[in-house]
């Protein structure tokens, strides 16, 4: 049993609203081993994004603990990389300068040339070779998201937090990027947390899928996906994959309160 790199125990959190506290997380447990990749799925508005902000140290939970690499997360740390549904590239910078942005914040031992080499290497990995001097506005949505992934990895983070990064892309681009993720992971070891609405994406990318219940969210169901080598898109169309998707879909229905369950009083 490897020690978990990300360890979230019994986290509770509520937002203050005009109508009183709005609980979003209510007993959340997630544990990711080093090098693992966890996908978190759940109904809309169940607190998945809150989870990413907790791991990133952008906020503190009301109750419960978030641990990264044996240290309790109290504030942001430079060992985290983030990518969102919105690629949030800076329009006034070239793609290369966008990718290198985190290195302006995080202390690094790399020289300027090494930094640039690394950025170019990452861009090459995601298929953006030759686009380093373009502006974000000259790129398509999928290409911008690729650049955003490079930026989230440039400073060699231990943890990569992906908050629905492929949500706004068309189906074909999305599948392309899934494969890109696998090639990135092969070259750049990281521990990943992926928030997604796409069940196929979750079983294709992750080695563990966590289903959250509806708001306030707690861990409702955990599915392990055995991996031997990077998957092919065809693997999504096997009876095995269909079974997994069916189970997950059923769990989401329970979470939404549309299907009865003994664990969740509907």
């Amino acid at each position: 049993m490897t020690k978990p790199l990300i360890h979230i125990t019994d986290v509770h959190h509520a937002y203050a609203t005009d109508a009183g506290p709005l609980p979003v997380l209510d007993g959340l447990n997630v544990s990711v081993p080093e090098g693992g990749f966890v996908a978190v799925v759940g109904p809309s508005g169940c607190g998945k994004s809150t989870l990413t902000r907790l791991i990133a140290g952008l906020m503190k939970p009301d109750r419960g603990e978030v641990w990264l690499h044996g240290e309790r997360v109290q504030s942001p740390r430079s060992t985290v990389g983030m990518a969102f549904q919105n690629p949030v590239l800076l329009e006034w910078r070239t793609i290369l300068k966008n990718v290198m942005l985190p290195l302006e914040i995080v202390p690094t031992k790399m020289s300027k040339t090494e930094q640039e080499q690394r950025a170019l290497h990452l861009l090459d990995l995601v298929g953006l070779k030759g686009f380093e001097d373009k502006r974000p506005s000259e790129l398509s949505g999928g290409m911008r998201q690729r650049a955003s992934l490079c930026r989230s990895l440039i400073h060699k983070p231990e943890v990569l937090i992906l908050d629905e990064p492929f949500g706004a892309l068309d189906a074909f681009t999305r599948e392309d990027l899934w494969q890109t993720m696998h090639s990135l992971k092969a070259e750049e070891p990281f521990t990943g947390v992926l928030i997604t609405h796409d069940l196929r994406e979750s079983i294709f990318l992750a080695d563990q899928v966590v289903v959250l219940s509806g708001r306030p969210a707690k861990t409702q169901y955990v599915m392990n996906i055995p991996r031997n080598g990077p998957p092919e898109l065809d693997d999504l169309y096997t009876p095995e994959a269909a079974d997994r998707l069916n189970i997950l879909r059923h769990q989401i229905e329970i979470a939404q309160g549309r299907a009865p369950s003994e664990e969740v009083g509907a």
């Binding site: 902000r53 504030s75 949030v88 914040i105």
Partner: peptide, 23 residues
């Protein structure tokens, strides 16, 4: 300013002033 812009730098430990100047 979309919160994600802020988060991109804040999650790396950047100060408010850095977020202001850079973004």
């Amino acid at each position: 300013l979309e919160p994600e812009y802020r988060d991109i730098l804040r999650s790396l430990g950047a100060s408010q002033a850095t977020v202001f100047w850079k973004i």
